[in-house]
Write a protein that binds this DNA or RNA. Structure first.
Lengths: 158, 158
DNA sequence: GTACCATAGTCAACGTGGTTGACGAAATAG
DNA sequence: CTATTTCGTCAACCACGTTGACTATGGTAC
């Protein structure tokens, strides 16, 4: 009979994936805070990445993040308030308000990328490069394929 | 120079971990809904597991989940409202209100465990047992060790 | 050129999962 | 008996998401 024993195999996998994600994110933001970006919240790095160096609009950002344009707009509000993003009118289409990164935003994104690289290096040091590659390949197989394309990610929600 | 290219190695890892977690959780709840538990939300399975067959209290549940007792209480409210949990007075300590699972809660938890087992089986079929074991081992090494004990988990939060 | 439709952004209301602070009631230590 | 601790709850708030409605603008068909 099936019990709810937490030692059951099935329960471990989601917990471990979540734990892995959380440790990376927590480490990232601890380090970001240390490097002068204490305002950056867990999702903000992903949002900055989705905005990109070329800028975007609220609607397009929502599509990239897999959330509604309203939710995207609210997140942009917050990041504008803390100085990471800017909204400028599009002279060629008065409906659009183009979202761009400020120099602070660019710095935060650059540091996020560097810190993530360094954290991955830590995994490589502990596990060896083959294991980390295998882990990524396997996750790509199981998750990315039937969920989203990683360059246009959608996270959370439900 | 460090760009924000999403193809950079460091960015992939957290995204893939999150994607893996999300696909498991999404599949779980799609299947749970099909099996008569459409009310169960993503975190509820973990909450049920944390309540356990012996029951617990709001304060203790909060500690197990790594959240405040108030937040735990609110989640219990919702699960009581949809019939998965019960609150009963403790005759030996009038301050305590013991949280227990209803038969519906037990059924939901049992099905969650079974579905998780089956989903892990799918991973094993696709990747092979060694790869899945390696993945879990590696995640345990990198994440679980310095974050939480899996039998007394704390998730989310910020 | 005017009607019509699609699109961009915003507002409002709401849901959910968290937080902190305060507080009453009950248990416990002295 | 008094002082302290603990349990549960209330209230206010925040972050992040949703849907529906609405305005303004742009593009297209006639």
């Amino acid at each position: 009979m099936a019990s709810a024993d937490p030692g059951r195999p099935g329960f471990q996998l989601p917990l471990l994936l979540l734990a892995g994600f959380r440790t990376l994110i927590d480490d990232l933001h601890a380090e970001l805070a240390r490097q002068g970006h204490p305002e950056l919240r867990p999702l903000h790095g992903f949002v900055l990445q989705a905005v990109g160096v070329d800028g975007t609009t609220a609607t397009e950002l929502g599509q990239r993040l897999g959330i509604s344009k309203q939710a995207a707009g609210k997140t942009v509000d917050r990041l504008v308030a803390v100085g990471y993003l800017d909204r400028v009118d599009d002279p060629r289409d008065a409906r659009r308000r183009v979202i761009t990164m400020t120099p602070l935003g660019v710095d935060g994104l650059r540091r996020s990328a560097e810190i993530f690289d360094r954290l991955r290096e830590r995994w490589v040091e502990s596990l060896g490069p083959e294991r980390v590659d295998a882990l990524e390949d396997d996750l790509r197989t199981m998750a990315a394929a039937n969920w989203f394309r990683l360059d246009v990610p959608g996270w959370f929600g439900s």
